[in-house]
Design a protein around this nucleic acid. Structure first.
Lengths: 191, 191, 191, 191
DNA sequence: GATGAATGAGAATTCATTCAT
DNA sequence: TATGAATGAATTCTCATTCAT
């Protein structure tokens, strides 16, 4: 039942905004009563957090790419693989990750904390790549963070939400992200 | 009274999440009754939209920087001025802009539409700058969009919300953003 | 409406135990909705407290009897008047005073506090009467308190609740209370 | 398990009001499930009644004092022993006896009946003592009942609940009760 | 004897909204 | 323009209770 409730909660969010997701709705959709809902979760946020948690486990896969060697020879390939993998995972867990970000952005501590932990290793991994590729770079962390932020937001962005959406495709966007990483890793900052 | 209600609504959001902002709260804070609230606004979203609208007018200032010539001589200065101006405006209207983005991200059409219009000119301006500086660049729009997205998100980011927040300062972050713009405008993409 | 809600709440309690008095019941009986109930009271306890408060104002009358002179000449008359008055007030506000005592007995601080204040003057008045009538009496306060407690409890006692109820009448009980006060005030404690 | 549930129910009441004691709470505290609770008891009232019943058995001891001869020679000693014994038993079973009285006061028939039976013999015993000591006394039953009521209420009273609590000690109170019994038994009513 | 899982039924509570003044 | 009073319509939440194992 617990599992079933989680699934249905996600389904409902996929369709409409999660702002007005009610316990009654979820329970009904899962074919059960609100009382049963409260056996497993303390409130709507609680189910969502459980979903986010579960989705996060898949995010671990991205670290594999970061654990490999990124040399000037395979740089383009690695960057490409990294960005594609990341985008892939987001596509699979778009709903959950968007919730995670929205809640965190709205200052929800539980989700904030969780996102922090969940992204730290990735950001640190990227920082290291930048530092290795551009030893003279003064603040690789900030640079990595900026591009990572862009990547994450664009991954989660509803395409309707992008300016001039008509002229832009997911493919072009991903390419642009890759190019910027390459710029940073190969050419490095200006001075 | 209308003005007063808007102000108090913003104040209340500054303190806590706007998700549970109620008409009664706002009315009370503004020292009036809910009935009066309804004289001016149709619901909470309505006040917020009015606030966002108002804040947006200041955003027009950023276009001045984009209307100037960005040549290789003054590039660093212009980029710096652009980023600083943008960050400045965000600081002044953090609450409103954050609401705008959150609502848009959650798929609220009114806000989505509004953000689209509000950012289009800026993004197109940036696209033109990239295209001018790097005539061979294949998709200046996507590149501009990526960096603009990063900039905007980091502007609105609560610092608590940033990974490894302790090691990062607003200054470093802004510098990183500037460096990335410079990289793009001066060195250009890899091939 | 406020007044109406209070009245109906009392009526409902008169009929059945107040333990399972619900907001919905009261609202329904008062011909209104629960929302209206919450405009005036925060919960059931709150209405009851308001009722108790109101009833308490009548209790002030009892002090008139205590403010008169109780001499050996009129002692019997004064004691009789005091007990009768007290019993009278209880009869008029049986429901409210019983609630006050039950809540206080169950440790409800608000009611405890209120009862304390409400009875203090009476008890102190009685203490003074005992001390005047029996100057050698060592602890007039305790003696007065014991009889006052008995009086109050018997006033509020449902007659069903009294042992051997069949043989006892309200009249006999009141007489017994008067006799005990007389014993204390006229003859005094044993040594 | 049955025993364990009873114990834990009492413990929980000791801490907070029994009005919001739930089956789930008791079961949890007893380290078992609600289903098991229902194997032994039909509801919360049922456990409480079982507890009260058990506590009542100790109350039988008080009758020993009443079965002895109370003559003018040993009157003070007997009264003292009676009051002390009674207070002692109350101290030991404060929780149970308070529940008994509260439920009875609220009109719960089961508890009302039980209290009636449980106190009848004592009250009749006291009536007989008064009648023996004061043969001319017109209604010894009422007089005995009044003082017995006082005694019982003060025994169960939380000291916080007593007016002017600061100036009164348990000792003084017990002494006052004894004095009143002595007054009644030795000097008798006024005419 | 014991219990895990589930739930029906109802209670409290909130809030946007209306309407007469 | 302003508001006091009232409420409809949800929604959350709790709890006693059952039943298959």
């Amino acid at each position: 039942m617990r599992k079933r409730i989680m699934e249905k909660a996600l389904e409902l969010i996929r369709d409409s905004s999660y702002k007005d997701l009610t316990v009654a709705d979820v329970a009904y959709e899962a074919g059960t009563s609100t009382s049963t809902f409260y056996v497993y979760f303390s409130d709507i946020e609680d189910v969502l957090f459980a979903c986010v948690r579960e989705a996060d486990q898949d995010l671990g896969r991205i670290k594999d790419v970061l654990n490999q060697e990124w040399s000037s020879d395979n740089m383009a390939a690695m960057v490409s693989e990294f960005v594609d993998s990341y985008m892939n995972i987001w596509e699979q867990h778009a709903v959950e990750l968007r919730i995670r970000n929205q809640e965190a952005d709205q200052g929800n501590l539980r989700f904030l904390q969780f996102r922090l932990e969940s992204t730290r290793e990735i950001i640190e991994g990227l920082e290291k790549k930048v530092a290795e590729a551009q030893p003279h770079c003064k603040n690789p962390l900030s640079l990595a963070l900026v591009l990572f932020t862009a990547m994450e937001r664009l991954a989660g962005a509803n395409f309707r939400a992008l300016a001039g959406a008509t002229r832009i495709t997911r493919k072009k966007l991903n390419d642009a992200i890759k190019e910027l990483w390459m710029m940073l890793l190969v050419k490095g900052p200006c001075d």
